[in-house]
Design a protein around this nucleic acid. Structure first.
Lengths: 343, 343
DNA sequence: TTAGTTTCCGGAAACGTTTCCTATTACGAG
DNA sequence: CTCGTAATAGGAAACGTTTCCGGAAACTAA
């Protein structure tokens, strides 16, 4: 870490025998400069190893070339994909990404939005887990553009942010799938959670009659909840013939415990999860799941944000909705053992 | 996104009826200001919703309060833990983290180091997958401090960076474990890879005689390689009684395929992986592995970097070595079925 | 009261860019 | 050859802070 004195635009100007304005023009390709002097300047820059001060540029230009990405917890199953996808999209446009973990705590999410200026970014992509009353209000008074990745309940249309969401049909898809393969006693395993209560609602709505003994609510959407749910279902005298899990972590916990308990999946009980996180393919049997399109959703959220930053536009806010996609794997191939089910 | 005119330190000064120097003193708690005026200023700040321009501060102070974290791919198994750990540590010191994916490509890693100034950060934490000849040279001429998370071969001691590494005993640990539980025909499954060739070397060195038919090299350290290795081992007339996998992804691939092939783990074949990534606990059986201490290593790397940034010190560079830790799980509990093996 | 300290505060320079505005040069047309 | 215009270059202001330095005010001690 040699502590060489910082070389500034002035040094370059002197070396090249031109004014600093000219150097600036050379750097930024802003025109009004002859090819000859430009070459001269570029060479001086090269020889001196000059790198423009981003701080000074930021101060003058009023942009930072950075955006922030706030997710609940990067260690969660599908967050890395989202982070990756956002970074790739941002990089293409010369933007850096500052990562923030909000722990999915509403208060921290709000603080992130409120204090977004302290992050030194031109915009914010946020994937909230909670929607406190003041969420929209906070977003609306943000001094920088915001894109919301919304996997939760519908947001009021007057939100001043681009919103990329899912059609909230993921639960219905999973249920319809289980019904379509002939399951009649379908159980639910999940946890109470405001944000994705639609997943449970879909369960209720897909059935003509809900047998409350087939509903297991744990504390969270974790492996552990899945394991406990498996214990519970196994203890019933009349076991379910399928379990619809609120997310894939629960589904994985379920499957592993079922295996320990001697319950065969999918022969005795079919299982379908939601999220299509990458763990679903490393279990045995591999788990059927509904993709919530993380890569596509986050990529679009990034594009929309950057567009709004570029165009400095306050106009019409986009609201884009993706459709979830059912991915059938081994854990729910039940009725037609000999035919290929994937289509 | 209301586009309110930016409120500056001057507005605050005027409102509070003081000079801008005084406002600055109030913001930064730099002393030389009475409690009374400070209160006055703080109130003005509050009323106006003033937030200091980070760009201007950066320009003047010459720091950015940002560090960069460059990892091969955030989607890789244990990267999220590292990213999380780094962010937590950085946040405690008021630093933000800019994430970079290098794809583990040596060229990109080098470019990241060379162009670190373009990242607008005060320091860099890098976890390289490749060590081109010019790596140390590049690090040594970096204008900002660097911490290297080194899971690969030893770096020359004259590197001008703090280095946090592992003792490279992880392979030996895994092998000794398999030997200690009585395995005599131990196989290796992995891939050619410069950076962690020690893992294979440990295999060779732990055995008095290497049976080449028990070594499987795939293309990469993936699930797929593990699956292919399982096929291969199963095809041998004299199967191994244990497989030492170069990393956990391979181990997982192995185990799942073994299960499909009717090979019982650990009864027929014990398995031990390396990395202790979180997937190891969601398979069945859970996989024994050697922890490479990602959280601890990355946390320390962050602390060292921030210390060096704070103290602007060119002096003695730290080289800290962690010890890997064997975590015994179901996949290698073989000889003593009835006793608890974990200690 | 007064001189000497200490405390508190404000003006202005500096950080390193971009860009407006003006000046110079080059060039083509008449 | 001369004039008008376009192309190119440079000086200086501005971006919003921090901090040096000097001065005013408020104390303390005689």
């Amino acid at each position: 870490m040699p502590n060489r004195a910082k070389v500034t635009i002035e040094d370059v100007a002197e070396k090249a025998g031109v004014g600093i304005a000219t150097v600036s023009r050379a750097i930024n390709n802003s025109g009004g400069i002859s090819e000859k002097t430009k070459a001269k300047v570029l060479q001086a820059i090269d020889e001196l190893g000059f790198i423009p001060s981003i701080a000074a540029q930021s101060l003058k230009i009023r942009n930072t070339n950075q955006i922030a990405l706030a997710v609940p917890d990067i260690r969660n199953a599908f967050m890395p994909e989202i982070a990756w996808s956002v970074e790739q999209a941002a990089k293409q446009h010369g933007y850096r990404v500052v990562n923030i973990n909000t722990s999915g705590i509403g208060r921290i999410e709000l603080e992130t939005i409120r204090d977004v200026k302290k992050l030194h970014v031109d915009g914010l992509i946020i994937l909230p887990l909670a929607y406190p009353k003041t969420f929209v209000e906070m977003v609306n008074k943000s001094p920088v553009p915001i894109s919301v990745i919304n996997y939760g309940k519908k947001l009021t249309p007057d939100i001043r942010a681009d919103v990329v969401c899912l059609s909230q049909q993921e639960g219905r898809l999973a249920m319809e799938h289980l019904l379509s393969i002939g399951c009649t006693r379908i159980a639910y395993a999940g946890a109470p959670c405001d944000i994705i209560e639609e997943r449970y609602n879909a369960y209720v709505n897909s059935l003509s009659h809900v047998d409350v003994s087939l509903v297991y609510f744990g504390e969270d959407f974790s492996l552990n909840t899945g394991a406990k749910a498996a214990d519970y279902f196994k203890s019933l005298k009349n076991m379910p013939d399928a379990v619809y899990a609120g997310n894939d972590m629960v589904a994985i916990g379920l499957i592993n415990r079922f295996k320990e308990l001697g319950v065969r999946v999918p022969e005795d009980v079919a299982v379908c999860g939601i999220d299509n996180n990458i763990y679903t393919t490393i279990t045995s049997p591999q788990i059927s799941s509904v993709s919530i399109m993380g890569v596509e959703v986050s990529r679009l959220a990034t594009e929309l944000l950057l567009k709004r930053i570029r165009e400095n536009e306050n106009g019409v806010y986009e609201k884009v909705q993706f459709e979830p996609r059912l991915i059938v794997r081994e854990s729910s191939v039940k009725m037609r053992r000999t035919t290929t089910y994937l289509d």
